[in-house]
C-alpha cells in the first residue's frame, strides 16, 4: 500500500454508516503515550528520535494479528503534498505533518486506526469510526494500547497517570472528538447558543477549517478538555450523554425548517446540487458549503438521486492534496478549481 494507492479509496470512517450518521460524521479517540526511558520530544536528540521509532516499530511488529494489517509511512521522507494528503485524510495531525526530524505513521489498511510516532508525544494512537459509537471505539483503542504496552514501558506516575509532553493531556492521555454536521442549527441561528452551553460543561467546540483557515460553516467538533481525575469510561459517558442532546436540537431545527420554510429549504438544497453539477471552476470553501446543503437535503429526503457515502467521500476527495493525488500531478490554485469542478460533475452525475 503506497500513498498513491490510498488516494482513490476512502477510509471506513467515511462510509456514512453507524449510529446517528445523518448528523455524526465520525467519532475519534486518541491516546497520548511516551516511553519511560526517553526524554519528551522537545529534548530528544536525533539519535533518541530514531531509537524511539525503532523501539515502537519493534513493539508493533511483535503483534502477530497485525502483520498484514499495518503499513509504515516515513513522514520525514514525504513530499509536502503527500504530508498534506495524509492530514486531509486525518491519518496524521498538522503538528506531525509540519514537524521535523525522524517521525512516522503506521496506518491500518482499513484506516480504522493509525499510530503517529514522534508527534508531540512519542506515540499517539488514534481510532476513527463512522457515526457515533464511542464505547466500541474505546474498547478497540484500549485493546491496541494493551497490545503495544506488552512490549514497552510507558511513562506513568502513580498519582498523575500517563505522563505527556503537555500537562493538558496528563492522566488518561485521552482526547475524544465527535464531528457533527449541524446545518439546520446554523440556518436557524441557534448554533451559538447550543455551542456556548458545551463550553460550560468543559467540552471544547471548534469549527472545521479548510484552506486558508476560513470557517467551513456547518461542521463542528466536540471534544473533552479534561484528561485527569476522571476515568476513560467516565469521560466517554459524559460525551455520550451530551452529543445526543445536540443531535436532538439539530433534528428539531431540521423539522422546523421543513415545516416552516419548505420552499426556501428545497431551493437552497437544489441550487447547491445544481451548482456542484454544473460549475466549471469551484473553490474548496464553496464546495464544502454546497456539499453541506446537499448532504442535509439527502438526509431530509429532498434529494434521492445522491448517496451519503458519495458526499462524504467528496468532502475529502475535493480537498487540495487529494485532488492533486487523484489527478496525478501538482496543480496551481486555478487549475485545482477547474479539476475540482470536473471531479464533482463526474461523481454526481453517475
Amino acid at each position: 500500500m503506497s500513498i498513491d494507492e490510498l488516494a482513490p479509496k476512502c477510509g471506513e470512517w467515511l462510509k456514512g454508516s453507524g449510529p446517528e450518521s445523518d448528523i455524526v460524521i465520525s467519532s475519534r479517540i486518541r491516546l497520548a503515550r511516551n516511553l519511560a526511558d526517553f526524554p519528551f520530544i522537545r529534548k530528544c536528540s536525533d539519535t533518541d528520535r530514531i531509537e524511539i521509532e525503532n523501539t515502537l516499530h519493534k513493539a508493533v511488529a511483535k503483534i502477530d494479528s497485525w502483520q498484514e494489517r499495518v503499513e509504515y509511512v516515513d513522514v520525514s521522507d514525504l513530499s509536502e503534498l503527500d504530508r498534506q494528503f495524509l492530514m486531509e485524510r486525518q491519518l496524521i495531525s498538522r503538528e506531525h505533518s509540519e514537524g521535523s526530524g525522524a517521525r512516522s505513521v503506521a496506518i491500518d489498511s482499513s484506516e480504522q486506526f493509525s499510530l503517529m510516532i514522534n508527534e508531540e508525544d512519542h506515540l499517539r494512537i488514534q481510532v476513527m469510526q463512522s457515526g457515533f459509537d464511542l464505547h466500541t471505539s474505546y474498547d478497540f483503542i484500549d485493546q491496541i494500547d494493551n497490545l503495544i504496552e506488552q512490549n514497552v514501558n510507558f511513562a506513568f506516575h502513580a498519582r498523575l497517570g500517563y505522563l505527556t509532553a503537555c500537562p493538558t493531556n496528563v492522566g488518561t492521555g485521552m482526547r475524544v472528538s465527535v464531528m457533527l454536521h449541524l446545518p439546520a442549527l446554523v440556518m436557524t441561528r441557534e448554533i451559538d447558543r447550543v455551542l456556548r452551553s458545551m463550553t460550560k460543561i468543559n467540552l471544547a467546540v471548534r469549527g472545521l477549517y479548510g484552506e486558508g483557515s476560513q470557517a467551513m460553516g456547518d461542521f463542528y467538533q466536540i471534544s473533552n478538555q479534561v484528561t485527569l481525575g476522571r476515568s476513560e469510561r467516565d469521560l466517554i459517558d459524559q460525551i455520550s450523554e451530551v452529543v445526543p442532546v445536540i443531535i436532538e436540537y439539530e433534528r428539531n431545527a431540521r423539522a422546523f425548517l421543513k415545516q416552516e420554510s419548505r420552499n426556501e429549504l428545497n431551493d437552497k438544497v437544489k441550487r447547491a446540487l445544481g451548482i456542484l453539477n454544473s460549475a466549471e471552476s469551484i473553490s474548496s470553501e464553496e464546495t464544502m458549503h454546497l456539499l453541506s446543503s446537499v448532504r442535509m437535503g439527502v438526509n431530509l429526503g429532498i434529494l434521492d438521486n445522491v448517496q451519503i457515502p458519495t458526499i462524504n467521500k467528496l468532502f475529502i476527495h475535493t480537498q487540495p492534496a487529494h485532488l492533486q493525488k487523484l489527478h496525478g500531478m501538482e496543480l496551481s490554485s486555478a487549475d485545482r478549481n477547474a479539476a475540482r469542478a470536473q471531479h464533482l460533475r463526474r461523481s454526481l452525475q453517475n
Partner: peptide
C-alpha cells in the same frame, strides 16, 4: 486549573 483535579483515576499499565 486545566483539569480541576490532581489525581488520575483511569487506566493503569497492565504490567
Amino acid at each position: 486549573n486545566v483539569h480541576g483535579s490532581t489525581a488520575h483515576v483511569g487506566k493503569k499499565p497492565e504490567q
